[in-house]
C-alpha cells in the first residue's frame, strides 16, 4: 500500500521517500484510532521499504507535531471498567504502541521527524524513534508524565538514554519542563534547527541527499550505530503498569480532563 489516507494520518510514497502526515485535531493526540492507523503503517513498511530509502513523519496541523497520548480517551475508557480490566487494557495498548515504535525504530529506511510546535509525551517519543529530528525553531519538547503520576510509556526513557547524556534525561523527566528547539539542539537531541515553517522542506532536502547513498551501506551503518534497547523497553511497560494502579494516576488524569486551567500543557 504505497498511499493511505486515514482519519488520523496519511502517507504517500514519492521519489523514494515515504511521507507520513499526522492530522488529527487538536494536536495529534495518540488514541485508539491513531494507534490503529500507526499499526497499518507498521504493517505496510516491509512493502514500502522495497521502493523507498527514507521516511519523513510530520504534522500538517499548525498546533504542533503531537501532544502525546490521548489522555481524555485513556481516562474515560478506564472509568468504564474495573481496575483489573483497565490495567489489562493499558498494557495491551502499550504493547501495541511499542510494537509500532520498535518497527519504526528498526526500519531499514532512514527516518526523519520534521517537528514544530508541541512535541510532548508520546509525540516526543514518536520523534525519538526516528534517526534524525529536524526541528522548526518554535518546536518544544517535554515529558510531562510525572505530574500524572506516570512515566513516559511509549519507549521514551530508554530511547532518550540511548541518545543523550543521563543528566539531560533526568532534567527532562524529573522536572517535566519543556526544552525549546535551540536547547534541544545544544544537548544533541535535534540534528537541525530551521526557520519557522521550514522543517518539512529541509527534511525533504535531507531525504533527497540520503537517496544518493548505497542502500545496503546505509542500512548497515544504521544497524551498527542504533541499537534498540528491547530489554529496557519491556521494563518500561512493566513500570508504567505498576504505576498506573496508583490512585494518584486516576486523580491526575481526572484533573487534566476536567481542567479549565488556561495552561494545561504546562508542567
Amino acid at each position: 500500500m504505497n498511499d493511505f489516507h486515514g482519519q488520523s494520518l496519511s502517507w504517500e510514497l514519492k521519489d523514494g521517500v515515504v511521507e507520513v502526515a499526522l492530522h488529527r485535531a487538536p494536536c495529534n493526540e495518540i488514541g485508539s484510532l491513531t494507534l490503529e492507523e500507526l499499526e497499518k503503517l507498521a504493517a505496510a513498511l516491509p512493502s514500502l521499504e522495497q521502493s523507498a530509502h527514507a521516511l519523513i513523519i510530520y504534522s500538517s496541523l499548525a498546533s504542533g507535531f503531537c501532544a502525546g497520548a490521548d489522555l481524555r480517551e485513556l481516562y474515560h475508557r478506564s472509568q468504564e471498567m474495573d481496575r483489573a480490566a483497565a490495567l489489562k487494557g493499558v498494557r495491551n495498548y502499550l504493547e501495541r504502541i511499542h510494537h509500532v515504535m520498535n518497527t519504526l525504530d528498526a526500519s531499514p529506511l532512514t527516518t526523519i521527524a520534521a517537528v514544530h510546535g508541541v512535541t510532548f509525551g508520546g509525540g516526543f517519543e514518536l520523534a525519538l524513534v526516528c534517526d534524525l529530528i529536524i526541528a522548526d525553531k518554535m518546536a518544544r519538547f517535554a515529558f510531562p508524565e510525572l505530574r500524572l503520576g506516570l512515566i513516559p510509556g511509549f519507549g521514551g526513557i530508554p530511547r532518550l538514554k540511548r541518545d543523550l547524556g543521563n543528566a539531560v534525561v533526568r532534567d527532562l523527566l524529573l522536572t517535566g519542563r519543556s526544552f525549546n528547539a535551540t536547547k534541544a539542539h545544544q544537548v544533541g537531541l535535534v540534528s537541525q534547527v530551521v526557520a519557522e515553517g521550514e522543517a518539512l522542506r529541509i527534511a525533504r532536502a535531507t531525504a533527497a541527499q540520503l537517496g544518493k547513498f548505497d542502500r545496503r551501506t546505509a542500512i548497515a551503518a544504521k544497524q551498527f550505530i542504533k541499537p534498540i534497547p528491547y530489554e529496557e523497553l519491556r521494563r518500561e511497560i512493566d513500570i508504567f503498569c505498576e504505576l498506573f494502579t496508583q490512585p494518584a494516576v486516576e486523580a491526575g488524569l481526572r484533573k487534566f480532563v476536567e481542567s479549565t486551567d488556561a495552561q494545561p500543557y504546562l508542567p
Binding site: 508541541v118 518554535m138 519542563r177 525549546n180 535551540t182 495552561q263 504546562l266
Partner: peptide
C-alpha cells in the same frame, strides 16, 4: 491566547532574551 499560544510566546521570549525559562516558573503567572 490559549495554552498552546502561551508556549509559543514562551519560546519567542526565550529566543529574544537568550534565556531558558522553565515552564514551572510560569505556573500562575498571567
Amino acid at each position: 491566547i490559549d495554552s498552546l499560544q502561551a508556549l509559543d510566546l514562551l519560546t519567542r521570549l526565550e529566543t529574544h532574551f537568550h534565556v531558558e525559562l522553565p515552564d514551572y516558573e510560569l505556573q500562575g503567572v498571567t
